[in-house]
Write a protein that binds this DNA or RNA. Structure first.
Lengths: 193, 193
DNA sequence: AGCGTTTCTTAAGATACCTTAAGATTTTTA
DNA sequence: TAAAAATCTTAAGGTATCTTAAGAAACGCT
């Protein structure tokens, strides 16, 4: 399917769009194709687009002072990825966004999107919904991180994101969950045996 | 100042409201007064209101299986508090919301707010902004929790929320930061001396 | 098919943080 | 203003998780 059609369908599962609006919305996005390991957003660049994953798998991560990578988010088909802080404040990104597989991403520029909010209020509603849910999800993650053991976090991750678990290397899951790959490996051994 | 006026001013710092809209918005909220320690939302109840703190200080927290409290959020004058998951999904809350001081809260019912989104699009925009920023903030907290030591988290908290630090007991800050009160006490001793 | 690269595992020693328990201090209430 | 309740501190011993280093397995390219 044409990636833009995928996106329109994605919107229409959540909000009402007339055919005219849908066409108008579709024209605002453009397609970016990424090879495996290609970086879509580098630290230091300002993120000026909202990004929808039509196909593939990406991660966003940041590198701390000791050059350790911390994975902030994985994203697969149907998800949105961004360094939202950079996007909203127009400051240099502290995150990288990188393709983990060959991927197709649809982008809309901030200025275009802001116009679209006025032209098609349903799109503003879509993003309100989206951020409400995203907020709940990330708050839940924070709470898990604070109150659960590494083992509990890992098994919750597996049951919640089985599709992601099978597409990304184990050491990245460890990073996402805030533990070392060695420790995760030990956990798995303990409970698999 | 009348609490409703405080709220209108809060909106007007972020979005444009005609006088007519402002009056209309103001009428949708009602005032709730809370004594210290009073609970505004209990676990098990469905949260049906969005809540703005006109005055005072509250916390939201949840109790895990071992009956340990984990503080999710503090809120003071000008902040919003809610169990958003319960509000959005109409399922029983897993969080408590409790006043830590005498407080005045302004509430709007979900149904009223949903109508208001259609009547006054600027209000929908306000909440889009709000959740965008809230998402960024809580993502930042997650990252801190995952990548920093307890000591780093504590000093960041102090510099970021000096106003809150001075209003809430130290053991609650420990809970918010995901450490034991004993450990926080030891940290403070180490670095104060 | 073979070689380099990426990913996963193992294990020993180190450390950050927790648990328990008790006493000291501060705040609230009667 | 005294008693009760809430909060903070101290200290000893325990556990979860990390660090380092090395080798094994899987994957990807020529």
């Amino acid at each position: 399917m044409d990636p833009i059609d995928t996106l329109i369908q994605h919107f229409r599962e959540r909000i009402v769009l007339t055919d005219h609006d849908a066409r108008c919305v579709g024209e605002c996005f453009h397609v970016v194709t990424l090879k495996k390991k290609e970086v879509l957003l580098h630290t230091g660049e300002v993120s000026s687009h909202m990004r929808y994953i039509a196909e593939g798998c990406l991660r966003s991560y940041y590198m701390d002072e000791e050059a350790r990578e911390h994975i902030i988010q994985f994203g697969i088909d149907g998800w949105w990825v961004n360094d939202l802080y950079s996007y909203l404040t127009r400051t240099p990104a502290k995150q990288f966004i990188q393709a983990l597989e060959h991927s197709v991403v649809l982008q809309i520029h901030r200025d275009t999107l802001n116009q679209l909010y006025d032209q098609v209020p349903a799109i503003e509603r879509f993003f309100r919904f989206k951020f409400e849910k995203a907020y709940v999800a990330v708050q839940d993650r924070t709470l898990n991180t604070l109150s659960k053991t590494a083992e509990e976090r890992y098994f919750e991750f597996r049951s919640k994101y089985r599709d992601i678990e099978q597409r990304v290397p184990q050491y990245m899951i460890a990073s996402y969950l805030g533990m070392t790959p060695e420790f995760l490996s030990a956990l798995r051994k303990k409970t698999t045996t």
